[in-house]
Design a protein around this nucleic acid. Structure first.
Lengths: 251, 251
DNA sequence: TAGTGGTCTAGACCACGGA
DNA sequence: CCGTGGTCTAGACCACTAG
């Protein structure tokens, strides 16, 4: 791997050229996916990785730059590069966009209402790239800010990945749900797509959110993805936006 | 500027160290702000800029990389680097997040309802970093998808920057409003912050959106910024999300 | 074919954090 | 003090576009 003679040069045709640094990026992603380094771990230094893959440090650097831009990995000058975790507020609040009209952003408290096994409807199966009838875990919870229930989440997870999920497990583990997913199920949420709408709240959710019937709520449909762009969670949220708003940056 | 002896070395204290490539980035930003290159223009090549600022091509490259990441500039291999414009769908749909439940994403048609001069309330003045009572332009418009009114925008602009804004100008210029802003007022929108809530529609907006009274709508408060992180627009949008949703990516 | 951005390398030095 | 990531340079070559 000397003199700009890239690995890509070996590829047939010309369809799928990808630069060396992206190939390295993908190898790192595979290693992460395989659990070689876990959330919070330091990954090997740039020099080590360069040796391991027989490329220059600059190429490894560019590969890591991309992973850092996706928040899959976090660089800390003088210390090293670490696998991102949802324990850090930095990451956590990228997925929890509700922000108070006044006062500080604080972590909510979570109350698990149930954790059931169900079968995938056609719609859910489609979103999670499963077949209709596939086993699912179905969790409902309420998040409260300052003792006020503000958000109801209905969460659907592929049964195959979350085998021993239980209400006990959910109650034993404080902190963000995604931290439990990382730590206990080795499923790291890397990005998500959301669809937002304003809707009248239905009776059931209204009760949970202590709202009058027919009040407007923000409905948030989220599909979350792990390393290989694999969908591993479908989540329907109902947000009371009377004193909180959903924050978004257009960049 | 040879041998890693950075300009920053000259700075007093140590408070505000900024690497050379960021200083170059800021200089480019100043040039953009001054109108040296206009939206759609090609900026000088990396080699030229390197000569102009007496740094290596690699340093210019990194400066431009940052601007490209912010979508302020667009790189096109083999052609050059261009100042981004809101004419391109790529940029346009980053600011227009409404997406149909089914069917293709298409550009809406716009109907201007009025364009007035008003004075800033304390709240608006605060958002736009003006003083209370400062002159504003106040525009209301309706956006329709497939002849269905779907979105009402109330837009507040600093009068000083949009002196000859008029309903005639607004009606003469088709395409995105931000393109008019760029082209006629030399104000380029670079990023924005939004606050979203679900709300009952008020009577006035309901009529415009052809909705029953008290229907839920998505209220979107947007503050938009130009080059130097200067707020130059406040916009309150009311979205009918019955057949469209607001799309967001969590990355 | 010339000119642009894109990739890759090699090496020197800087800034930061912890032992 | 050392090891980490961060910056900067210089130079060679690749990929793409347009004339």
């Amino acid at each position: 791997m000397t003199k700009g003679k890239s690995k890509a040069g070996v590829q047939l045709g010309a369809a799928a050229y990808s630069p060396l640094y992206r190939q390295i990026r993908d190898l790192l992603l595979q290693a992460l996916d395989a659990g070689e380094w876990r959330p919070g771990d330091m990954i090997p230094s740039e020099v080590e990785l360069a040796a391991r893959y027989s490329v220059s440090q600059g190429t490894v650097r560019k590969a890591i730059d991309e992973l850092a831009a996706e928040h899959i990995v976090i660089r800390r000058q003088g210390r090293g590069t670490f696998v991102a975790t949802h324990q850090e507020d930095h990451i956590r609040f990228r997925f929890l966009r509700l922000t108070p009209d006044d006062g500080e952003r604080v972590a909510p408290t979570s109350q698990i209402l149930f954790c059931r096994r169900v079968r995938a409807t056609a719609e859910i199966a489609n979103a999670l790239q499963l077949t209709t009838g596939a086993p699912l875990v179905f969790i409902r919870r309420v998040l409260s800010f300052e003792q006020k229930p503000t958000l109801v989440d209905d969460i659907y997870l592929p049964g195959a990945l979350f085998k021993d999920m239980s209400i006990k497990l959910l109650k034993d583990k404080p902190g963000p749900l995604y931290w439990l997913f990382e730590d206990h199920f080795e499923v790291s949420m890397v990005r998500a797509e959301e669809k937002l709408r304003a809707q009248r709240v239905d009776a059931e959710i209204a009760t949970l959110l202590e709202l009058e019937p027919d009040q407007p709520v923000l409905k948030v449909e989220r599909t979350s993805y792990t390393y290989g762009d694999r969908a591993v969670e479908l989540r329907i949220g109902y947000y009371n936006t009377e004193r909180y708003y959903y924050h978004n940056s257009l960049i």
